[in-house]
């Protein structure tokens, strides 16, 4: 079942077209990753889904309703730039934000207590936010996002600026919510998290959705055209290779994307001549590689045009 439907949406700020005729669908109960470089239009799209901005043309529907104050209640949103009232007590602040999402006071109090307990933060309820450490206020921010128990959770760059512990906690919470049948949409440019968590992805570049589908299908469509090479010895031979792109290069490892039908056997031969090979593996490209090649090619095309 489609829970978020974005149809031919365009949004411009003056002469700058931030989102250009974008369409995608998010299935209920899945984790959807919105990828793309900075300035690709992810945040603008997310703001339109949240009914903070209105599209110039096209339509966004949430659970069958056009984005409106009604659909805002169905969504929990954590923006990229996070923030809360510094001089307000944690408990009052959470109650206020949860009530704004339309939850009744008594229910809201229960939900807040539950989540404060879950994050081991009950002691902070009477404290002003300004007294808390950065890590602590990040937890409060999660609670503010999820306490009203919506069906859809939207996180804009949720892992940026998080310490490793909170990063892990957030991952757990996202998986937990998914297991409860909730839908999660998040934007990021950290590909390892997408590979670990996302069911579906949509890749943005320059205001357009350039690639989308389930993570598995997207990767399969690129074919097994990548080599994971582990070696020992002088790695300078890698520089002599043509028609390849090398990612994740280190002193004894390289991820080599083979382009234009370059023979993998030739690469292996060259490698064997220069270094001791520990591992030579033919794999699907990493999401990072997909990201770079898609965005790169798209940008080259745009410049030519």
């Amino acid at each position: 079942m489609v829970i978020i439907k974005v149809e031919n949406v365009t949004k411009a700020f003056g002469s700058n077209i931030a989102v250009n005729d974008v369409s995608f669908e998010v299935e209920k109960g899945r984790i959807f990753g919105l990828l793309g470089p900075n300035g690709a239009g992810k945040t603008t799209t997310i703001r339109m889904i949240n009914n903070i901005l209105a599209p110039d043309s096209g339509q966004i529907t949430i659970n069958g309703h056009i984005a409106s104050p009604l659909t805002q209640k169905m969504i929990g949103y954590m923006p990229e730039e996070r923030g809360l009232y510094k001089k307000m007590k944690v408990g009052e602040q959470l109650l206020y934000l949860t009530q704004l999402k339309g939850m009744k006071t008594s229910e809201a109090k229960k939900a807040i207590d539950f989540w404060l307990e879950r994050f081991e933060a009950s002691d902070w309820k009477k404290k002003e936010l300004g007294e808390l450490s950065k890590g602590m206020s990040q937890k409060i921010q999660f609670i503010a996002t999820i306490a009203h128990n919506p069906d859809i959770y939207i996180f804009d760059e949720p892992f940026s600026g998080l310490d490793p512990i909170n990063s892990e906690t957030l991952k757990e919470v996202i998986i937990e919510l998914k297991n409860q049948g909730k839908t999660i949409l998040f934007s990021t440019h950290r590909m390892e998290q997408v590979e670990q968590m996302c069911d579906d992805i949509c890749l943005f570049n320059r205001g357009k959705a350039v690639l989308q589908g389930s993570l598995r299908e997207v990767k399969a469509s690129f074919g097994e055209n990548t080599i994971n090479l582990e070696f020992e010895g002088d790695g300078s031979f890698l520089d002599k290779l043509t028609d390849v792109r090398i990612n994740n290069r280190s002193t004894n490892f390289a991820e080599i994307r083979v382009l234009n039908g370059q023979s993998m056997q030739d690469i292996l031969k060259l490698a064997m001549e220069h270094a001791e090979i520990h591992k030579f593996e033919r794999v699907q490209p990493s999401l990072n590689e997909i990201f770079i090649s898609t965005v790169g090619e798209d940008n080259i095309k745009n410049e030519e045009a």
Binding site: G83, Y85, L100
Partner: peptide, 10 residues
């Protein structure tokens, strides 16, 4: 404080 975006989503 950047809280305004959270509020604008409500």
């Amino acid at each position: 404080n950047r809280i305004v975006e959270v509020i604008a989503s409500s």
